[in-house]
Amino acid sequence: MNANEYINSGAIEAYIHGLADEADIAQQLEMEGRYPEVRAARMALEEQLEQQALQMPLANPAATRERILNALKEEKAHTTKVVTMPTDLKAAPKPIRWFRTALAASVLLLMGSVLLNFYFYSQYTDFSNRYEELSARQNVLANKANAMEASMQMIKSPQVQPVVMQGVPGNAGMMATVYYDKSTTDVYLMVNNLPMPQKGKQYQLWAQVDGQMVDAGLLTWTDDVALIKMSRIANAQAFAISLEPEGGSKVPTLTEVKVLGKA
């Protein structure tokens, strides 16, 4: 591939957007080394994308700036500088004979000090890692709480109609509920009781619209969220869930329909 073909192939775009794999990255660097015009094209494209991005920012509230800068201050405060202990004893003045014992003792003390520094630094790193872990967990819990609150608000809305889907014959006990807002066409799904799909399978929600079954989205299995936002559907008369090959199907596999409910 010559330089022009490479430039026009989209490989540079993939590299810039972080979509290139290791082989692509190696090829990009190799092409840049071999053809200055490839490097120039990459830099020009980067500059163009940056200018476009800077011209269409998505602004945040002013308080966000202070919050983030304060978080960085705290991050800096937690960063510990490791002091390098002097170890180049050859550079020291030659000790006089009677001072050798004292020097040996100093070296021992120095080694002890280095070991203690290492021990305390390890302890600090350990606590620091634990603190980060706890912070991350707290963020996850806060996000869950927010998601739960948003779900409750949505369920309470008078516009939202719950559609209970019961297990079809042969699947007694299975149950899921769709919360359907006809005015906005929003569809949310709550899994009440569905068995974990086996490997290679995935649940798919379907909506019946004017006699046709319309794909309403795949169910990503997670216990993190109570309500899962699905695709928007207008004028749904019923909902159903079927078990499909992973990645979903274009039409429902009728023998695999598990639950069904009318809107």
């Binding site: 940056e50 991005a53 800077l54 269409m56 920012p57 998505l58 602004a59 945040n60 966000t64 700036r65 983030i68 800068l69 960085l72 201050k73 800096k76």
Partner: peptide, 18 residues
């Protein structure tokens, strides 16, 4: 800190959009 403040003022909107 002033460099991160500059970074925020110039790039946060673009990064936020991504």
């Amino acid at each position: 800190q002033e460099a991160f403040a500059y970074l925020y003022d110039h790039y946060s909107g673009a990064l936020n959009a991504i």
